[in-house]
Design a protein around this nucleic acid. Structure first.
Length: 269
DNA sequence: CGGTCTACCTGAAAGC
DNA sequence: TGCTTTCAGGTAGACC
């Protein structure tokens, strides 16, 4: 499940192969993604990719006539392969470049998307996003102020894209454990001090995963052309019923907002 | 408006 | 063994 670090590592991985390259062909093998893939995407044909950007978990391929927006959803990945390589099952969208390479979006569950953004405009999906977690725009005092009087559990609060982007279920679980905060606690009742602990932990956790992914990336176009998921050292996620690595008590699981939430009842208050 | 719930989708895992 | 059911999860949009 690509979280922000995987998307960032994908960005780093594809950039050397697509930046300043001319797109010779766009193939939409299955345009039935989360939203129908618009024909606008064909406008890339014949144009040069002038930038590869990440915003939240979206990737943008910029060119003179607009930007292609890609999202990997739950199960998506990008590969750079030789254009004559046979398609794999679930290779839905393909950009072929003058250098003989193909960028392919593979997504079994099709929760991802491929959309188009006109130049000078911001797509509706990107317009209401909160700050990037790794920038100074995301800081404890602001989060604290936004959380006042909010009854939603703090875990759901930090997973809200309007507060901060790119914190998915795994990182929310892990960060709250490291910060010693009970994920069920009302956001409005979390102290400034707790947010001052949590926010740097979120940043460090994401940054460490990106570093780790970048380190193991080597060359995106070699081997199978996609980054492996980084074997994260997960402290709580997926460890329901197992002992807390700090205090040995049994980790509990509850569902918050239909999402699996694992925590230590003793370490997290 | 705030909060909650649902839909979208396939494959792996669990249940029978 | 093989069929059926459940679960996983990002996020917009419907709903109350």
């Amino acid at each position: 499940m690509p979280e922000l670090p995987e998307v960032e590592v994908s960005r780093m991985g594809i950039t050397p192969h697509v930046l300043n390259q001319v797109v010779t062909k766009v193939n939409i093998h299955n345009g039935s993604m989360r939203w129908p893939v618009p024909d606008d995407v064909y406008q890339l044909t014949g144009l040069t990719v002038t930038g590869v950007e990440r915003r939240a978990k979206y990737l943008l391929l910029h060119c003179a006539l607009g930007s292609t927006i890609l999202h990997l959803g739950m199960s998506g990945n990008l590969r750079v392969v030789s254009a004559n390589e046979p398609l794999k099952k679930h290779d839905h969208i393909e950009f072929i470049f003058a250098n003989g390479k193909a960028l392919r979006l593979n997504d079994p569950r099709r929760f991802g998307c491929c959309l188009w953004q006109a130049p000078g405009s911001v797509h509706k999906l990107l317009a209401k996003l909160g700050p990037e977690p790794l920038t100074d725009e995301f800081f404890a005092k602001q989060v604290y102020q936004q959380s006042r009087n909010k009854k939603v559990p703090v875990k759901q609060f930090i997973m809200n894209n309007a507060i901060v982007v790119g914190v998915g279920n795994i990182y929310a679980n892990e960060s709250l454990f490291k910060a010693g905060i009970d994920p069920r606690r009302e956001a409005g009742k979390v102290s400034l001090k707790s947010f001052e602990a949590l926010i740097p932990i979120i940043k460090d956790t994401l940054a460490a995963a990106i570093t780790q992914g970048g380190t193991t990336l080597k060359d995106f176009a070699q081997s199978d052309g996609k980054p492996g998921y980084f074997a994260q050292q997960l402290l709580v996620y997926g460890r329901k019923g197992q002992p807390c690595l700090v205090c040995k008590s049994e980790l509990q699981e509850v569902r918050l907002g239909q999402r699996s939430t694992v925590f230590c009842g003793k370490c997290q208050k």
